[in-house]
């Protein structure tokens, strides 16, 4: 098994190539290869469109055998993201993790989650309740409002 460091170096090289077209920019901390920042350009046709969201990614030493932990640094109104702590509820970051996932594919999965929220097991109950009640207008409105307030300068 390549060490986490070797694998992260490879991911770094890969990330510098990919950032323009995918809407995902991944950069490690200048002094610490185990702490990363990601900037997501929110997907089109979502209430988050036009917003730019920053993620803090902490990579454990046993990576990639165990998943990294990911937190939103930008406030976001979404049923699977905690409004205060920025915690993300995503199966691949827990039990469904596979070492073949990368930091980049994790970011892609989070982008997909922005487009396609899962109303059950919400971290943000207000957002979850709006979705479960089928109130798309209310949900879009709130998400849009917070996107404008926090994710667009």
């Amino acid at each position: 098994m390549a060490t986490a460091r070797q694998r992260l170096l490879k991911e770094y090289k890969e990330a510098t190539k990919q950032k323009q077209d995918t809407g995902i920019a991944l950069i490690p901390d200048e002094t610490n290869l185990f702490a990363w920042r990601a900037r997501l350009q929110a997907p089109k046709d979502t209430p988050y469109e036009g917003g730019s969201f920053e993620l803090a990614i902490t990579v454990p030493e046993q990576y990639p055998l165990v998943p990294p932990s990911v937190r939103f640094r930008t406030k976001v109104f979404h049923p699977n993201m905690h409004f205060k702590t920025g915690e993300v509820c995503l199966d691949i970051l827990k039990t469904a993790w596979s070492p073949a996932w990368t930091l980049h594919s994790v970011c892609q999965a989070i982008m997909a989650l922005l487009s396609d929220p899962a109303a059950d097991s919400p971290l943000n109950c207000d957002a979850g309740n709006l979705l479960r009640a089928g109130d798309m207008r209310g949900y879009n409105c709130m998400a849009r409002m917070y996107t404008i307030e926090y994710a667009m300068q």
Partner: peptide
């Protein structure tokens, strides 16, 4: 030759 999709070697 093939690339291992975990370590990318």
């Amino acid at each position: 030759q093939a690339t291992c999709m975990i370590c990318f070697e």
